[in-house]
């Protein structure tokens, strides 16, 4: 620890870079491979976690009668699941592809924006000094305490004054920044980004924004990936607000799924088929972002 600081002070950025690499590298004699107990415990956690997704598959493969008769209608999913997929995609009532496109646009734009602005603000709060920093940060956190249910009516009035009802920006714009994200990046960078690195860059003559770009951003990468993932999932599954400002001509995926669920009796087989179909793109993204999450730290070190 202290060696990092010293090198940063005395030997300039190159030494600091090396120090970062050392500081953050994963492997090392201290972290030997995990033993079987760890895998067993994680296996239990994973079983519990994956269960609803698996259950969704099962229900999507069963017929409604079986579902209402047995707690667990069957133990293995089967191909009748694809019938539900086809029903959802081909239904004339719902525009699946439009909804998929809308959901993608909203989730991508919002996560990119939240990550960028949160990292900027988080870096500023965590590592820069300015007047009013403390109170402003407390203010950011306090905004999370406002119950969202009541914001609906004023927000709707606002959106309707702007003429945005039914348009994607009514969902996107209010979500472009998130107090949660700012707070998270602040706390993460406070721990993960050593002052020495910033100083080293500044000594080298880098401007503030350049320092942010080449030092803070790479260091923030794991947290940013996580924030991006969370935001993406949150937007992807968001139902209440889009259901009010959007309509079935211009829906998102959760609205589509919900519209499968009409009548007094819910055809859970169809709904669960829809739920799984809507979750599928997320799982693909998981695989991708997941790699980023694991690799994030190493990359951060290389770039830093």
């Amino acid at each position: 620890m202290s060696s990092v600081a010293v090198t940063a002070q005395t030997a300039g950025p190159h030494a600091a870079k090396a120090a970062v690499r050392r500081r953050t590298r994963r492997s090392g004699s201290a972290t030997h491979r995990a033993g079987p107990v760890v895998y067993i415990l994680l296996g239990i956690v994973l079983l519990i976690s994956v269960f609803p997704l698996y259950f969704t598959l099962l229900l999507g493969s069963s017929d409604p009668v079986e579902i209402s008769r047995n707690p667990v209608p069957q133990w293995l999913p089967d191909t009748s699941l694809f019938t539900q997929f086809a029903t959802v995609i081909e239904s004339t009532q719902i525009n699946f592809w439009l909804a998929l496109g809308n959901s993608l646009i909203i989730a991508i734009v919002v996560s990119a924006s939240v990550v960028l602005f949160s990292t900027l603000a988080g870096y500023s709060f965590a590592k820069l000094r300015f007047r009013g920093r403390g109170p402003l940060l407390v203010f950011v956190i306090a905004t999370m305490a406002v119950p969202t249910q009541l914001g609906v009516i004023p927000m709707y009035i606002l959106m309707s004054d702007l003429g945005w009802i039914g348009k994607l920006q009514a969902v996107i714009v209010p979500a472009l920044v998130a107090a949660f994200g700012v707070f998270w990046m602040t706390q993460y960078l406070a721990e993960a980004l050593p002052y020495e690195l910033i100083e080293a860059a500044r000594v080298d003559g880098a401007s503030m924004i350049r320092t942010f770009w080449s030092i803070a951003l790479p260091a923030a990468r794991p947290a940013a990936a996580m924030l991006g993932l969370f935001t993406f999932v949150q937007q992807w599954t968001n139902y209440f607000w889009p259901s009010i400002v959007l309509s079935s001509e211009n829906p998102t995926l959760p609205l589509v799924v919900k519209s499968l669920q009409s009548n007094y009796f819910v055809d859970y087989s169809l709904v669960m088929g829809g739920v799984f179909l809507v979750t599928l793109p997320l799982l693909v993204i998981f695989a991708f972002v997941g790699k980023q999450l694991v690799a994030g730290i190493m990359q951060g070190a290389v770039k830093g």
Binding site: V45, S49, V50, P52, L53, P254, M272, V275, T279
Partner: peptide
């Protein structure tokens, strides 16, 4: 894997 409960729709 551990994030899946967060992902699956509340209706499920």
């Amino acid at each position: 894997g551990v994030l899946i409960p967060y992902v699956v729709a509340p209706v499920a």
